[in-house]
């Protein structure tokens, strides 16, 4: 039921984005080589082909921005600290909502041109990942200078956690910026290879494609992508999560059985 709801929601988003720009003749058209990525026991990553047509092609000064965004998820981060010479988890921060997967692919070489554009749209981006604040707000009894200093410390702390989050997710291949990754074919057509890493989080992804002319959005399209567990491991995972005690009971039975079988096999010798 929940899955159906998310599907309807995503489809509605997709439709809304497609319909939004009224200047229909300037539309960008995009499709994926497949909409469904099964993650099974032997999953070692996947490649998808995204291809499309952007109608105004003669001048060639329009930029394409593609965002692949996974399902939103909350996270807890911790930082190791040294206590009596031993490293253990110390400070903790929460990230209440961040995509489990986030890649930005662009047609430009330059790294940050889309950040302005993103900020105006108030969408999730690398810069506005919000990290919880642990320490109490500055007390009014403190001097303004002291308050200022505390605030600055908090911001530095948050920045450290934020960049660590991006770094760790990036190392797993989950977060990334890929400038100049869109291949143009002639005037109108373009194609992109999306690389999905092993250990891909499951859920509903959205692939958004934006056509940007002189810093302004001229056309956009969103396509859903479904990443789901498949095969035996999917069954075991779902079973262990949903019916954890029954799973435990089965694990006990299987182990007992394995023990009896092992004993029978070697009892003679």
């Amino acid at each position: 039921m929940r899955r159906l709801a998310t599907f309807v929601a995503t489809s509605a988003v997709a439709l809304a984005v497609v319909v939004a720009p009224s200047f229909a003749e300037e539309r960008i058209v995009v499709d994926l080589s497949r909409y469904d990525v099964p993650v099974s026991t032997g999953f070692s990553g996947a490649r998808l082909l995204l291809f499309g047509a952007s109608p105004q092609g003669d001048s060639g000064d329009a930029d394409i921005l593609i965002k692949v965004r996974g399902p939103l998820q909350s996270y807890t981060m911790s930082r190791k600290e040294r206590v009596f010479g031993l490293w253990r988890n110390g400070a903790r921060r929460h990230i209440s909502s961040a995509p489990a997967f986030f890649q930005i692919l662009t047609s430009q070489n330059e790294d940050n041109w889309f950040e302005d554009f993103e900020r105006r749209r108030n969408a999730f981006s690398f810069r506005n990942l919000s990290v919880s604040v642990k320490s109490a707000p500055p007390r009014s009894a403190d001097t303004p200078a002291r308050q200022q200093e505390q605030l600055r410390e908090q911001q530095q702390e948050q920045q450290a956690f934020r960049s660590a989050f991006l770094r760790l997710q990036g190392r797993k291949g989950l977060y990334g910026k890929l400038p100049n990754s869109i291949e143009r074919l002639g005037n109108n057509l373009f194609r992109v290879n999306l690389t999905l890493p092993p250990g891909l989080p499951t859920g509903t992804y959205i692939v958004e494609t934006f056509l940007i002319e002189e810093g302004k959005l001229s056309s956009a399209q969103a396509t859903p992508l479904f990443v789901r567990r498949a095969g035996g491991s999917a069954f075991i995972f779902a079973f262990a999560e949903r019916y954890s005690f029954l799973y435990g009971f089965c694990a006990v039975l299987i182990a007992l059985l394995a023990g009896v079988v092992a004993n029978r096999l070697f009892a003679r010798s």
Partner: peptide, 8 residues
Amino acid sequence: LFSITEGI
């Protein structure tokens, strides 16, 4: 030094 776990 940092590590991530899912959930709060």
